[in-house]
Each structure stands twice: as C-alpha cells, then as structure tokens.
C-alpha cells in the first residue's frame, strides 16, 4: 500500500516537473527492442518444455498426449487458435484451463489445487511455465480463433458485456481504461481494446515477462491484475468470465500477429 502512495506521489511530482510528455518522446519501440533481446521468458519456456515431457503427478504421466486443439501432443500453432470450443469437454477453454484439464486427466493433478492456489506458486507456477512453452511455439503466428461454434459466440458476447460492465468501488469497467487511443500509464501504453488493433496489441503480447518485477505473467494473471486495478472482486482462476474476456479480445484481434511471449515494463 505504501509503495502505491509513493508511486502516486512520484507521478504527481513528475507531472508538475515535466508537463505533457509527448507519447513518441518515450519511444516505446526502442524500449521494447532493447528488452526483447534476451527476454527472460525463455527461462520459463525451457522449464515448461521440461515439464511437458516429465512424468509427474499421481498418474506419473507426461503431458505429451495433451490435446490443445490441433491433436494429441501438437504444440506448434496451438496457442494462436485458443480459446476454442473443445468437443471432449463441451466447453470453451483458454490455454490455462486446457492445460489444467490435461494435468488433471493425464497426470491426476487436481485442478482445484491450481484454482485455489496462488500466482507464481506451486502447481500454478508450473502451469505458467507450460504456458510459456506452448505460446513460444505460436510466436509470429496470426491470431486465428474460430468463433463459429454457438458456445464461442456465447462467450464472445459475454466477454463483450463484461468488458463494458461498470462495477466496483470506482464504478469502472475495462472500457474505462481501455477504450481510448494514445493513452499510457507510466511507460506502458494502454491499448484501445475496443478496436481490432488494440485488442490484438493486448491479447497478442501476453503472456509476458515483466522487467519491473522479474516475473512471468500469463493472461490469467494479467486479467486478475486488471480486475484489481478496476477495484472489483477478484476473478476465480480460469473462470468463465476470464475466458469470455479472452475470447472477446482474441476474437477482435483475429488476423494480427502474436508476439509471444511478450516482454513488458
């Protein structure tokens, strides 16, 4: 809490000292370029690849038979087409919830353990490493989620509704912070997610390694933090609303290139 006050005080001081920083003066592209060379997300990817192949859990099995939508064990390109409707579960699943399902069915690791767990800890941390591994194999692919299934349409509509739904102590919606062009907070651009370019910029650059805290964050983690920034109730890990928001953003961003894993402030 104290840290937050300090940050506010600092940004106020900066605002007075240097009014109206032009957006391009910060040169986000140069910043990103410098960060992208040697993105430490690679360390998580290595760990994830190892985890994918390691026999673990009560069933002592690997994840090599996990079907991420393109067939058992197929990793390349899979993340670019998620979230999707899966016939075997008859549910729309994002990468995290699908991996969680594979960990439960193949390895016997209970999903509850991850849902009730904490970010960056235990099985949820392992799940994040697996996410790093899977998305790396869709780096540069075009976002291509299939919205034709009725359950995908339903999730898209729910996501759109959630995006504009004002709630919490400040009466904020996602759209309160993400529906204008050219906005930034500190050294982070705030994409306008109501437009395809903005949706693609947001969806297609997470999961990401954050240099400010040396942590690798999945999209579930990103969304959880935005719920917090919205000052509203904490979302349940991999719950329908988080997947719906993902379908909304990915669907709007369809066709754009994904830069995975990203690297952020």
């Amino acid at each position: 809490m104290r840290k937050q006050f300090k940050a506010v005080a600092l940004s106020l001081a900066l605002a007075f000292a240097a009014p109206a920083f032009a957006q391009d003066e910060l040169n986000f592209d140069a910043y990103r370029e410098m960060l992208a060379d040697g993105n430490p997300a690679e360390l998580y990817e290595m760990e994830g690849e190892e985890l994918w192949r390691t026999a673990r859990g009560p069933k002592n099995a690997t994840l090599e038979q996990c079907d991420l939508g393109l067939g058992a064990g197929v990793v390349p390109g899979a993340a670019a087409q998620l979230p999707r409707h899966f016939a075997d579960t008859d549910r729309v699943q994002d990468l995290e919830s699908r991996l969680m399902y594979c960990m439960e069915t193949l390895q016997g690791i209970p999903s509850e353990q991850i849902i009730k767990g904490k970010f960056l800890k235990d099985e949820r941390a392992k799940l994040a490493a697996l996410v790093a591994y899977v998305v790396t194999h869709s780096n540069g692919e075009k976002i291509a989620i299939d919205l034709s299934h009725p359950k995908m349409k339903e999730m898209y509509a729910l996501g759109e509704k959630a995006f504009y739904y004002r709630t919490g102590a400040m009466d904020f919606a996602c759209s309160s912070c993400h529906s204008q062009d050219g906005k930034r907070i500190r050294a982070t651009q705030l994409p306008n997610i109501t437009k395809p370019e903005g949706a693609a910029a947001g969806w297609g650059s997470w999961p990401a390694y954050r240099v400010s805290n040396s942590q690798f964050w999945t999209m579930q983690h990103r969304l959880w933090d935005c719920f917090r920034q919205q000052r509203t109730a904490e979302p349940i890990f991999a719950s329908d609303v988080t997947i719906a928001l993902s379908v909304f953003m990915a669907g709007k961003g369809n066709g754009a290139e994904a830069v995975w894993p990203g690297v952020k402030r």
């Binding site: 060379d37 040697g38 430490p40 360390l43 240099v211 040396s214």
Partner: peptide, 8 residues
C-alpha cells in the same frame, strides 16, 4: 545486476 541477468 538485475534478476535473471542477460549478458551479450
């Protein structure tokens, strides 16, 4: 030096 150092 930062966490998870990168050296080139």
């Amino acid at each position: 030096v930062s966490t998870n150092p990168y050296l080139a």
